[in-house]
């Protein structure tokens, strides 16, 4: 379980929150604190006050995979292969193991064909896929995805969803503006003005957002079809 208590950091204030294993979707307006929450969960920043525990450990003691919306800002190497290999090489794993992990992660995300390429040749969406493969290569317990789906087409998003299902990581926390994606998560958090306004399953959360555009289109269509 991920447990948050007495958390205050920049705009964000979360007195108490517990997340079960599985997929958590974080939704809410721009500037509501979604990315701030994600960077704290990933251990990229330390909270000004309060604490976050993942199975009893702070995030920096947990194997975390993190992907941002603009991987250009976090990538280190020129070649795709080197980028995906970087977590394994930084961990001083034997060469054969590095190769195995790179190939496995690339196959999982379906980007073997990108391995010999350089970042300059890749599109925005492809860079996101490389960042995801890099994050998955270390076998993270916690995967944190910061709106990385906003540059993916529907088919690629489907491939990614399958890759995430087969990956063994216990927690996946992602923020998204795609409500159809959020509707498929185990848990949904709705943030506004730095606070968690609603937390629960999609069936619990979305009815409270019915009067807003955060209500999934497919749910609206279903109900509309039902009424006619």
């Amino acid at each position: 379980m991920i447990e948050i208590s007495g958390l205050r950091h920049q705009v964000l204030s979360v007195p108490s929150l517990a997340l079960e294993e599985g997929d958590t979707a974080v939704i809410g307006p721009n500037g509501s604190g979604k990315s701030t929450l994600l960077s704290l969960l990933a251990g990229l920043s330390l909270p000004a006050e309060g604490k976050i525990m993942v199975d009893g450990r702070p995030p920096r003691q947990v194997e975390v995979g993190w992907v941002s919306e603009f991987p250009d800002q976090s990538l280190l190497f020129t070649r795709v292969y080197d980028e995906i290999a970087s977590p394994s090489r930084f961990a001083h794993l034997p060469c054969a193991e590095v190769t195995r992990r790179v190939e496995e992660a690339a196959a999982l995300v379906g980007i073997e064909y990108l391995l010999p390429r350089t970042f300059r040749e890749l599109s925005g969406g492809e860079r996101g896929l490389v960042a995801l493969a890099t994050a998955l290569s270390s076998g993270p317990e916690l995967l944190v995805l910061d709106e990385f789906d906003s540059h993916l087409d529907a088919e690629t998003a489907g491939t990614v969803a399958k890759a995430l299902e087969t990956s063994p990581c216990r927690y996946c926390v992602r923020c998204t503006q795609e409500m159809e994606t959020a509707a498929g998560a185990d848990t949904v958090l709705y943030l506004a003005h730095g606070a968690v306004k609603h937390a629960g399953t999609p069936d619990q959360i979305f009815p409270t957002l019915k009067e807003t555009c955060f209500y999934p289109n497919s749910w609206r269509m279903r109900e509309h079809a039902g009424r006619l």
Binding site: P29, N30, S150, Q177, C213
Partner: peptide, 13 residues
Amino acid sequence: DEPFSSLDCVQKH
């Protein structure tokens, strides 16, 4: 190029 990415639904509308 990708004008809707990052925007919340209110801003997309």
